[in-house]
């Protein structure tokens, strides 16, 4: 055994392998511990947003939809509410809004936006955000042609419009296939 160990072709790879094994397992352990925490933080934010969308407890099933990555769309989920209506919920991000980008959910049905809610934004004293915030329902009913830019929040409104246009375009492509 001692002679085997002296042989450097055994010693070196063995020690390297041993170290790598030990540390990969340590890393896996840490990941195992911290991943749920990180994921749960993100999920909590999304859950809050979903609850605002269609009301608490009204969602009976959720199903992820695959899509081609675009600038504004983060993820798409097909949601069925308790009254058996299908909605497509888009997780969107605005881009290039001067005062700060927003991450929000928009539910689309029949080519129109029927609900939306913000993820993770709680206190933002931005005038634009105030105009579009969860209670105001400004984006509801948008179907690609009737967007009214809020006076005094032109830049923010344009940001939302661009994001929603991307979502509506995807929705149109879905129904085109169907």
């Amino acid at each position: 055994m001692k002679n085997l160990w002296e042989n450097k072709f055994v010693r070196l790879p063995l020690s390297l392998a041993a170290v790598c094994l030990v540390f990969s397992s340590l890393l896996a352990l840490t990941n195992f511990v911290t991943d749920p925490i990180i994921a749960s933080m993100q999920e909590e934010k999304e859950k809050k947003a979903y609850e605002v969308l269609y009301g608490e407890g009204n969602i009976s099933s959720r199903e992820e939809v695959t899509f081609e990555a675009t600038d504004n769309i983060n993820s798409i989920t097909k949601v069925v509410t308790t009254d058996n209506v299908e909605h497509y919920v888009y997780n969107l991000s605005t881009k290039n809004v001067i005062s700060g980008d927003f991450n929000f959910l928009a539910g689309i049905k029949d080519g129109k936006v029927d609900a939306y809610s913000f993820i993770g934004v709680e206190n933002n004293n931005n005038y634009g955000f105030a105009e579009f915030s969860n209670g105001k329902d400004r984006l509801v009913g948008y179907d690609g042609s009737n967007f009214s830019i809020v006076s005094g929040a032109t830049n923010t409104s344009n940001g939302f419009k661009t994001a929603l246009d991307a979502a509506l375009a995807h929705y149109a492509s879905l129904s085109a296939e169907a």
Binding site: I98, S99, Y127, S151, G152, T154, N155
Partner: peptide, 19 residues
């Protein structure tokens, strides 16, 4: 810049026609 005007010249500029 928009934010500088919004906070300083509020009464005059921020009438909803900022740009």
């Amino acid at each position: 810049s928009l934010s500088a005007w919004s906070s300083e010249a509020k009464n005059v500029i921020r009438v909803g026609a900022t740009y």
